[in-house]
């Protein structure tokens, strides 16, 4: 589904990704862990198409298409979803309106007919139950004045609505208390199917108690320096990152 080969990216003069290799297949859950500043969000942003980053070499393919050739909105329409570490405030636009625009733009891209108000309402009701989100939150300007937990829950709601093939969740657990974490994780698990895949970017092992990964990768200094199964995450929880880092030097 996703095939990243020797991906290098920089911002300004600073090289941040220094040769990333990653293969994700349908039905899999991958966790990307690593200390702060190692490049996890950068990888997520580059895959999402943020224009601040310049890809200097390497490739990324998604469902057979050259991902790096596509605009961010085309990537979304192809089925990529990025849950932001820091969801952005969209002044004056409610989640409901925002999602209507997104859905209909994507449907247009795919050559499908626009959804009408009745269809939206039905679908929204269904998805709201997934993440236990309140209608009142969806009527407010998106992310404006939302608490950390509300922002993350809203990200998962959007994901539920858009039904992506590949979801990249960037530190979706950070800033969540344990109840919110459980709700978010349950949402992600409910959306899991043999046809889609998830990349969970996280700092802590905690989230992985709820979302069980098939593979765990350690990103350090712009490279994946170690990969393993969920046992690796447990080991990281116990021993920290230092043993991996010192083994590199």
């Amino acid at each position: 589904m996703l095939s990243v080969k020797d991906l290098h990216a920089r911002i300004g003069e600073k090289e941040i990704l220094k040769g990333i290799n990653l293969e994700v297949k349908a039905g899999e859950v991958h966790a990307i862990m690593g200390p702060n500043g190692s490049g996890k969000s950068t990888l997520a942003s580059v895959l999402g198409g943020r224009e601040d980053y310049e890809v200097t070499s390497g490739s990324a393919h998604f469902l057979g298409k050259d991902l790096l050739d596509l605009a961010p909105e085309e990537r979304a329409a192809e089925g990529l979803f990025l849950a932001f570490q820091y969801p952005v405030e969209i002044p004056g636009v409610s989640t409901t309106n925002f999602m209507k625009s997104a859905i209909n733009e994507i449907r247009k891209y795919r050559g499908q007919e626009a959804m009408d108000a009745v269809q939206f309402l039905k679908m929204f009701k269904e998805k709201m139950a997934y993440v236990n989100i309140d209608q009142s939150l969806l009527s407010r300007a998106l992310n404006e004045g939302f608490s950390g937990g509300e922002k993350k829950r809203n990200e998962i709601f959007q994901m539920a609505v858009l039904e992506p093939k590949l979801a990249i969740l960037d530190e979706t657990d950070s800033g969540l208390d344990i109840d919110a974490l459980r709700i978010v994780a349950e949402g992600v698990n409910k959306l899991k199917s043999p046809d889609n895949a998830t990349i969970v970017v996280t700092h802590y092992q905690r989230l992985l108690d709820y979302i069980i990964p098939d593979f765990v990768h350690v990103l350090y200094n712009g490279k994946i320096v170690k990969s393993g199964t969920k046992d690796l995450a447990l080991e990281l929880e116990e021993r920290g990152y230092d043993w991996i880092i010192s083994a590199l030097d």
Binding site: G48, G49, R50, E51, A71, P72, E73, R75, A76, A77, F81, L82, F84, P87, V88, E89, I90, P91, G92, V93, N97, F98, M99, S101, A102, I103, E105, I106, Y109, A141, Q158, L162
Partner: peptide, 26 residues
Amino acid sequence: SEEALFYMRSRGISADAARTLLLLAF
């Protein structure tokens, strides 16, 4: 805001539609 535009585009809204939406909200 470039940040807002990227966020909207990452949800499938084209750059022009995103700009229009933000301006209408304004």
